[in-house]
Design a protein around this nucleic acid. Sequence first.
DNA 1: ACCCGTGTTCGCTG
DNA 2: TCAGCGAACACGGG
Length: 298
Amino acid sequence: MPELPEVEVAARNLRRWGTKRTIRAARADRRAARLFRPATPTAVEALAGARLVSVERRGKNLLCTLARGRAERLGVWSHLGMTGKWLRRGAQDPSPPATRVELDLAGGTRLCYVDRRMFGRFRIVPGARFDDLPEIAALGPDPLTDGIDAAGFAARLGRLRTPIKVALLDQTLLAGVGNIQASESLFRAGIDPRRPARSLSAAEVKRLAAAIRASIDFTLGTFADAGADGGKADIGYVEEGTAENPFLIYGRAGAPCPRGKHGKHGKHGTIVRVVQAGRATFFCPRCQNGAQRRSRGG
DNA sequence: ACCCGTGTTCGCTG
DNA sequence: TCAGCGAACACGGG
């Protein structure tokens, strides 16, 4: 489930649930070792006694900074992969299925890192030196916290022959854009996802940058509406069927284009699904026709 | 059984 | 050497 907006919600949850609290005990289940790859399995128990100071999100990565005593800092890096979640439970509650790591906090709250498929990552980072991790150092700017530098974004895209939709998934270009946000933002910008990245005009790149931001903001808003909390911040995710699909076109193959009717004859487009680099892409062939698309306002 | 999946990495190929 | 893909990872759900 996790792209930038979902991870942002997880970061906000962790801040609310755990900041300033001390970890009384920590444990990992047997299969959690896979989450430490490629590093040596870490003793999660070493987190006991540390206090959560801050939670930062960079792209799809969660960076928790903890303090032990006055001087010592340590970090916890987690990446939710495909099925990772941070959930909160009370001291007496049963652990959710597929819980891999649990942190018992002072006051009775338990933070549970849950991951069924275990494509995620979980690692203790000595000194909270996150930038020493190659996975973090390689990240491009975060569209939400850093903004998109139009000139840099355009320069980078201008060198790529790869389809623009595939390029958007490259975390060194922008950190946090995933398969959903890529399709959604290209729809908002009216750009055909199959076009080579380098073929986009300056105006299209600018439109795309704004559309990425708009799509992320929109998605964040739908999560807030869905229940920012209330006691159990188990956000309903699309694939779990617990929430309506909140997206404009993602997962809507065969549906009429939400932009409505186009052209003099008033025919609406139909959303199609194609596969690019092994990933599903959704778009409207009628209003995302790239260079031929008439300029905005239509 | 088969296909699909909001992510990342590895290895092959041209 | 490098860009670009498909496969692999793992485990459900439809």
